[in-house]
Computed example of a mutant assay.
Amino acid sequence: MSSERTPLPALVYHDFRFTWKGQEYRLYWNDRLRAHAPRHLAHPYPVWIDPWDLSTVWFLTSECKVTPVRQEEEEDEPEEGPLVAIDVHYDGDKSATAAAVLFTHWQAETAFDTITTTVSPIAPYEPGAFYKRELPCILALLEKMETPPCVVVIDGYVTLGPNAVDGLGMHLYRALNEEIPVIGVAKNRFKDTPQDAELRRGESKHPLYVTAVGVSQDSAKTFIRWMHGAHRMPTLLTAVDRLCRDGTTSTGCPSTPAD
C-alpha cells in the first residue's frame, strides 16, 4: 500500500460507493464507527478521512475504485439516525426526568433538537443494580425519537472494572437488540477501572472514564475527545445534564417536551 495520500476533492464522503478486493462498500458521514470502518467489517479498507475537512476523502491505494451513487439509490436508503447524548435526573424516589440532546457530528457545538420526558413511578434504588432504575427512563426517552439514533452516549459506565462487568450501558445495548453502539462517559472513577478508560480533555488534570460497546474503546475515546468544548466535559454533555435538571440547555436549542 502506498504511503502517499491521493485526494479526491469535491466528494461528499457519505454519498459514494467504492469497491475493494471485489467487495462493494458504501461510506456514510455518520457511519456507526464514524471513520475508517465499513458496514462490512470483514476487511478494513484503506480510506482516510480528515474529520476537520468533510469534503475530502483520501484513498491510500489505487486498488479502490469509486462508484457514484445514483439519486434513486440514495432515496431508497434508510435514514441514518442522529448522535444522541442522554442523562437522567431524579426527583427523590417519586419521578425522573430523562433528557436527550441530538446532534449531527462529533464536533457539533449545538444540538439540532432536544427531548425530555418524565417517568413516574420509578424503581427504587437497589445497590449494585442501578440500571433497574435508570434503564426504563432511557428507553422511555428513546421511544420518543422519530428516527433511532446511530450512537447513544450515556452518563455512566458500559462495563465496570477490569473484568468488564455489565454496567448500565451494556444493559441498554442489549435492550436495543445490540444494534446501536453505546458509549459511557463517567466523571467519577469506579473501583479498579482500567487505566485505558481514562481520557483527559483540554487542560484538565482530572480524566473522564470512557467505556463502550458496539464500537472500539479507542474509537469511543476519540469521539469524546473530538466533542466540542475546551474543558473536561464536552459542551453537549454539560448541556444534557443541565437539560434534565432544569429543562434548559446552553446550546441555544429549547427543550421539546415529549409528553
Rank of each mutant, 00 (worst) to 15 (best):
W58P: 14
E198F: 09
T110Q: 10
V152P: 08
P38A: 14
F190I: 05
E198Y: 10
Y90H: 14
T110P: 00
V47L: 13
V57C: 06
V69W: 04
L135V: 04
F18R: 04
A123T: 06
S219F: 15
D241G: 02
R133Q: 08
L54K: 04
R242G: 07
A212S: 15
C137W: 01
E80Y: 09
V69T: 15
A42N: 11
T235D: 05
T116N: 01
W58L: 06
D246E: 08
F18Y: 13
Y45H: 08
A85T: 06
H228F: 14
W58N: 07
D53S: 06
A186S: 11
I224M: 12
A96S: 01
E198M: 15
R200E: 09
Y209S: 11
V66C: 08
P124W: 00
P78F: 06
K21W: 04
F16N: 08
A239R: 04
Q71I: 15
P9W: 07
T238P: 07
P234G: 02
R34L: 15
S2A: 05
K187C: 10
R200N: 13
T61R: 07
V57H: 01
G22F: 02
L54Q: 08
F112S: 03
K65T: 10
L236F: 07
Q107R: 13
I122Q: 00
L141G: 03
A98C: 01
F59E: 02
M145C: 09
S95Q: 04
I180D: 03
D87A: 13
P121K: 00
W29D: 06
F59G: 00
L142G: 04
P38D: 05
F112M: 06
A100Q: 07
C244D: 02
R245L: 07
A111Q: 02
P234M: 11
T56C: 15
G161F: 10
V153M: 14
R245C: 12
T116S: 11
Y209N: 06
A42V: 13
F223P: 02
Q217W: 03
E198R: 07
L83R: 11
P162H: 13
C64E: 08
E72G: 02
Y45A: 06
H40D: 15
C244G: 01
F59K: 12
W226D: 04
